[in-house]
Every structure is written in structure tokens, then in C-alpha cells.
Design a protein around this nucleic acid. Sequence first.
DNA 1: TTGAAAAGCAATCAATTACTCACAAATGAT
DNA 2: ATCATTTGTGAGTAATTGATTGCTTTTCAA
Lengths: 197, 197
Amino acid sequence: MIMGKSHEERRQEIIEATMALSVEKGLKKLTTQAIADRVGIAQPTIFRHFKSRDEIFGAVISWVGESLFKVVGGFFTGSGPADERLHQLILNQLAFMNRQRAIPRVLFSDRLHLESPKLKAVVQKMMDGYARSLIRLLEEGVAEGVFRQDLDPEQTARYLVAMIQGLVMRWSVYEFNFSLEDEAEPLWRFLWPSLKP
Amino acid sequence: MIMGKSHEERRQEIIEATMALSVEKGLKKLTTQAIADRVGIAQPTIFRHFKSRDEIFGAVISWVGESLFKVVGGFFTGSGPADERLHQLILNQLAFMNRQRAIPRVLFSDRLHLESPKLKAVVQKMMDGYARSLIRLLEEGVAEGVFRQDLDPEQTARYLVAMIQGLVMRWSVYEFNFSLEDEAEPLWRFLWPSLKP
DNA sequence: TTGAAAAGCAATCAATTACTCACAAATGAT
DNA sequence: ATCATTTGTGAGTAATTGATTGCTTTTCAA
């Protein structure tokens, strides 16, 4: 019997295996057995490190959310003109998702939402926080005069989130067969006329 | 034993029960037992009318797709200025989805896509046909001069689809707690600056 | 060195669920 | 009216899968 890993190391291995499998196989085949096989441990050992299957997904969601916030958080509160920060935000967010393919499979999955009200609440809380930061950024831009004066920040934030989420879902459905990162600049050029003063 | 219904009637009942349940409970609880209970028949009777569970979903997808095309098809090929047709298309499509809540739960569900390659192909074929019609409409608008001359029809079609799909997914995740139809006009006003000449 | 705690596993449970089968009841064309 | 076809059902099967249990092995601090 090999027991090289500590509790925390194993937890992280399980989280990473879960994300990798969500990309490769989708959530249907994401059984505790499949995760255990991927990690190289027996299926019941999973439950030494997580109380339940849902707890694994919860940990994955938290990990992804924190990673995403590390990447884009700076643009919400950083200095510089709001339009340029929004531009960079979209660029960096799509580039991050381009690397972290588990995001659409786990975070944007309607499956998790409808199966587990608890996980749904976790995701919604994250999304709401993201939306609030985006609204603030848009408000700053309107005040600075770099966006349309009659721009509705809440509405615009909804549309921006919807657009990005729709794009990412499409990218996921098409098996990631195009570069999400390369889509960022054209998207910004398309959106800019609706934002500019 | 009551056997009032013909084969076709039962099939339709099963399709409608499946759609209703997808709205109420999501796909997780969408078992053949639940469908049978809803229709008021025994669970094995389901399999007198459908060869498999996937065949039910296939029938639902086809039915929804045909219904949607009946509503929006006219705007693709109709007469009149392309910008006004696009405007009406978005209005009518969101109004239709506002009534047919099963669409995001079934058609836009990543679950079906990843679970059944066959159903995924059916949905993608429908989506591709929709996108092609939209591209043609945009091309006509550019030729008419009612849209920007440097507008890229394929790219714009992708963005429009992504935006609508993102909005509808959000609406579904939030349990349909706002009117999708009321979102259509503001959405059009937001998008128009990116389309107009 | 040692012994309690942690990490591992084989075996198994319990629940779920799509699907089958043998047979009964209803239907409808002749 | 009759009987072949269709529609229906209760009972059961096989497969999947999250989670438990009892026991073994490894780890590591005292």
C-alpha cells in the first residue's frame, strides 16, 4: 500500500482529477469510481477526503471561482480608465477560461444547478459578486465619461455576462475546437459601439 | 383498464409531460417513472410508445425545434427591411421562449449534449440551420445598407446567438423569475449601435 | 521503539432506474 | 360477434453508483 500523500494533497488531486474528467467526459461519467481511477486510489478512499460527492463539486467550484477572481479581480478595482479596464477584463477572462476548460463544464452546467440547490446557491453567490463588481466598473466608466451617458450599468452588466457565458457555452458544446482567446478582440470591437459615448 | 388514447395521442402526451417536468424539476428527476406518473400510465407502458428514453428526448427536441421554426421562420425569409425583420425576430423568439420554458432545460442543456452524442448531433444540426438563416438575414441587411457595411455576418450571427442563449440560460437558472419578453426591447436598443450603419 | 491516528482497500449495501417479459384487457376491422 | 392487433400492467432483471464497514498498512510524534 502506498500512502505518499497527505490529506490536503489528496484533496487537491481529487479536485484536479474531477476537473480533468469534466472536460474529457462531461458530468455524466463523473463518478466517484472514475475520479478514484484517475487519482490512482480505491473508490472508498475518496470518502476519506470528502464527505460526499457533492462536497467534491463544491470544492471544485470554490477553487475555480478563486482562481478566476485572482485573474480578473485586479481589473475591477485597478486604476486607469474604466473602458480600458473592461477591455482587459474581457481579454484576460476569456484567456483564463481558454486554459481552464472545466469552467463551462462545472460552473455553467445547468446540471449542477438543478441537481443540488446547495451548489446552485454557491454558484449564484459567486455570479452575483461578479455582476456587482462589473456594475461598479461600468458606473465608474459612465462617471468618467468613457461610456455612453445613458448607459444602464445593471442592464449592460447582464448583457455582458450573457454574451460571455453564451460564447463559452458554445465553445464547450463544440468541444473547444476554437480559441476562446482569439475571440476576445473581435468581441470587444463588436461591443464597443454599444458602450462608447 | 382504460385505453382511450391512440398511439399518436399517447406519444404527444408523453412529450408534453416530459417538457412540463423538465421545467418543474430539471433533467435529474426526469425518469421514465416520473413521466409515466404524470401521464397517468404505468412505467413500462412508456416503452410501448418510445423505444428508449433517448427517443423521448429526441422527439421533444424535434417538436420544440419545429415549433420555434414556425414562430421565427417567417422573419428569415419575409419581405421588408432586414433590420426590422431582425428586430421582430428577436422579439418573437424571446416571446416564444417565454412561453416554452422547456427550451433552455432541454435544448440548451449541456447534459443532453454530453450524455448522448446522437441527441447532441440533432441539436447542433438545428442550431446550425438557425445560424445559417441568421447569417443570410444579416447579409441582406448589409446589402440593403441598413447595417454597418463592415459588419461580419458570420461573426455577428455568433454573437447574437450567444447573447440570446446566455440570456435564456440566465433566465432558466433564476427559475424564470423575470419576463424574457420584456427583455427583448432593451436588448435590441443595446445591440442596435453595434449593427447600425 | 511504539502506539494512536491517518490513509488505504476489498467487500458489500442500498437505492435508483432503464428496460424486459408474460399475460390481461381493450379496440376495431371484418 | 370475433379475433388479431394494440395498449396496458405487475413483477422482475441487470446495471450503475454513492456511501458504509471492518480490517490492514503506513505515518509520525512522544
